[in-house]
Design a protein around this nucleic acid. Structure first.
Ligand SMILES: [Mn+2]
Ligand SMILES: [Mn+2]
Ligand SMILES: [Zn+2]
Ligand SMILES: [Zn+2]
Lengths: 150, 150
DNA sequence: TTATTAATTTATAATCATTATAAATAGTGT
DNA sequence: ACACTATTTATAATGATTATAAATTAATAA
């Protein structure tokens, strides 16, 4: 069994135990998210699957992404004006984002617990989580001398 | 001269040297941003000033916030569905955000340069900046047993 | 297998932050 | 005060996301 197949099986199990029905659309969205490396938007997913599901509504994609987020299968990466992007959850990692072409690349880094603790002490908040993104220019965009777009 | 007055003077100087005209609306928006502690949305600013400027358009607020961002006077904090919030730039700092009431509190922390360097090495990107936010529950919301809302 | 039932999907309209447009107005240097 | 142009205003448009309600279907038990 490949890694992707294992992730899919685990995800379907999670849905089953959470009492969420497994529909062909949900199956396909999960499958797409697991194999995708691009951190797709809802519309990316819709476009990728509307060949297989000609009647599927964008609302279905949004609805299911919300369901997946609520049961912890998916993380939503939100940005201002631009559309949210979705990341199938496998483990903690951070994102490097190209300000020229929008590419998002994963990277792992040993936790930032000390920052969380420090922030908690100095603000008095109870800490739940944190979000770290690094912005820059990807090698491809550097090569063609790309300028900041988004 | 108070700190706020100095910030305002510096900001107006920046506009002058950048060739951006100083209008009453711009003056008022800057003044409001400098004294505000709440990291206001464009609409917050609009509501706060439309008493003084009964004919001002929301578009004016948005336009000027973009101008201020472009000349480096203001940072835009973007979130998914929710409206952007704006922060008058005085120095580098991070944000602690209450997931219950939405409050945003500043905190300072010695740079995360090593994370930037690490990320650059491992991804091959040229790094420009990073964004770190810590999420949790503020003391007030903890006191009343508030639950996660946004 | 079939019937039942509630969850889900679909189609469509609504929402809401933000941006675009064009005409009216006003800041700045002379 | 004048001329030139940036800015403001009013309004419409955009685009991502959500709401609604009717039609469909997954899951479960008889
Ligand atoms: Mn990722
Ligand atoms: Mn701040
Ligand atoms: Zn790039
Ligand atoms: Zn709070």
């Amino acid at each position: 069994m490949t890694m992707s197949e294992m992730h899919l099986k685990d995800a379907l199990d999670t849905l089953k135990t959470t009492g969420v029905r497994i529909t062909p659309q949900r199956h396909a969205i999960l499958e797409y998210l697991i194999q995708s490396m691009i951190h797709p938007t809802a519309d990316d997913i819709y476009k990728a699957l509307c060949g297989k599901f000609p009647n599927m509504s964008v609302a279905t994609v949004y609805n299911n992404l919300r369901v997946f987020r609520e049961v912890g299968l998916v993380k939503e990466l939100t940005y201002g004006d631009a559309a949210s992007r979705f990341d199938f959850v496998t483990g903690d990692h951070y994102h490097m984002i190209c300000e020229c072409c929008g590419k998002i690349v994963d990277f792992h880094y040993p936790g930032l617990n000390e920052v969380e603790q420090f922030a908690s002490q100095v603000t008095g908040f109870e800490v739940n989580s944190h979000r770290l993104e690094v912005y820059g220019t990807c090698p491809e965009c550097v090569a063609v001398g790309g300028k900041k777009v988004q």
